[in-house]
Nucleic acid binder design. Structure first.
Lengths: 242, 242
DNA sequence: CGCCGATTTGAACTGCTTCAAGCCATGTGG
DNA sequence: CCACATGGCTTGAAGCAGTTCAAATCGGCG
């Protein structure tokens, strides 16, 4: 496992204003800087195994990771996507509840778990922000339950693309150009495992959305959103016409 | 809406050792006691509408509530069950993200939102416990995604029964008798909306589990778990034989 | 150039939904 | 005290969305 691929000062960090540290002042950042360290992973590498002891916690700096659970017979469910600024691991838990896997090249800003927990007790800014982020993730996880429990294959794929586009747009400082082009962070198989479908069905529905003019398949892992309103309509969420 | 059906002292409260207040000392409890108030709802009553302003937050004292989201065309997904000691509402959010509905007769121990937020800032015991509870709920929500995304109808129904039995057992002080008898907190329709199935399929799978000897259908809303190991095997989670 | 993994496409199958009765307990008014 | 609504539940039969299995195509990369 490669280490320390970069070591910028916190003040210059790309996720400075969105991660657990976002509410920290300069003095607090200085304390974090002392104990933080970076780790990098290649696409496909496992970061954490479910059930293993979590030696560290941290934030995604660049890249995307999946949180997933596997059943004995090989079925897999991707229960969450971790994008830049998202937090990995949890204070107060010894073992990881889910597998964490790098979906693309990934860099984490890490802290050893025990020291981080001690810091949290002294820095309410961090624990407040972590509570806020956790509540947001809980809402997101419950929103995803609607997708998994009640939506058709077409709606699931459209919902996924819409949510990736939304998160991508939020990370950028300037509004995205139209048409919005985006790199899909997952393979067809990982998408299927996230959407509760088979990879064949995902492929067919992507094709169908392209034929319908909502999107264009630019390359295997790259699409353009030609008609955002149409895509939104295909999610099944909202009859709100634009 | 009925109010103040009961007003026990916090020290005697049934959820004293599990709810947000579980870490509070006597002095802190006294502060909460000053501002708390009870609300009761009949089965079927709506507690909160999604999108509405949340005037209060609180804990389930008795009864069960559902958290759900409805799509325009009438599809419904129950994204969570709220059992005694679970927390309703969230500090730092003006509007409710989901509908909250009483599934049975329900009593909440409430706090007006703004004063509660102020209290939280002064009582780290409360915010720590809330973070812990939120992290647990997040894990539970993600575990449920596995059910919705990857399990068959049979496995979903078995998983639901197993999870209700587990939570029920955890609330009791003494281990449950064998066979464990339990009151289903939801109608067939609400179960279906939780499991991402139709009510007919739920009914058929309950019948099938009974025919297989895993459970007995004692009454419409009441079952016995005759063979816990068999039921566990039917969930699809674990090939661990007993 | 030729291999390999990822993706697309095709065709048959199936588990769940859909639509439609029927059942059972409870309650209500004549 | 019975006739008859009413709401939750069960049962049946037909249809279909998505899976499964299989094969073809694409796109990198050594």
């Amino acid at each position: 496992m490669a280490r320390d691929p970069l070591s910028p000062r916190c003040a210059d960090c790309g996720i400075r204003h969105r991660a657990v540290c976002s509410r920290c002042d300069a003095a607090e950042l200085a304390r974090l800087e002392q104990v933080k360290f970076y780790r990098s992973y290649e696409a496909g590498q496992r970061v954490v195994w479910a059930g293993d002891e979590m030696a560290f916690v941290g934030s995604v700096v660049t890249g995307v990771a999946t949180l997933s659970h596997s059943l004995e017979d090989g079925r897999v469910q991707v229960v969450g996507l971790l994008m830049p600024s998202d937090f990995v691991g949890r204070p107060g838990r010894e073992t990881a509840p889910f597998d964490v896997t790098a979906a693309s090249a990934l860099t984490l800003c890490c802290f050893r778990r025990a020291p981080f927990e001690r810091l949290m007790a002294e820095m309410p800014h961090v624990s407040e922000r972590l509570l806020e982020m956790t509540l947001d993730e809980l809402d997101a996880a419950r929103d995803w339950a609607v997708v998994l429990g009640r939506k058709s294959a077409r709606e699931r794929v459209a919902s996924f693309l819409a949510s990736v586009a939304r998160r991508e747009a939020k990370l950028e400082l300037v509004p995205p150009p139209r048409p919005q082009r985006l790199a899909l962070p997952l393979t067809r198989e990982a998408m299927a495992d996230h959407l509760g479908l088979t990879l064949e069905t995902v492929s067919r529905q992507l094709g169908a959305l392209a034929r319908a003019g909502a999107i264009a398949l630019d390359a295997k892992r790259r699409i353009s959103i030609l008609d955002p309103a149409r895509l939104a309509a295909e999610t099944g969420d909202d009859a709100t016409a634009a």
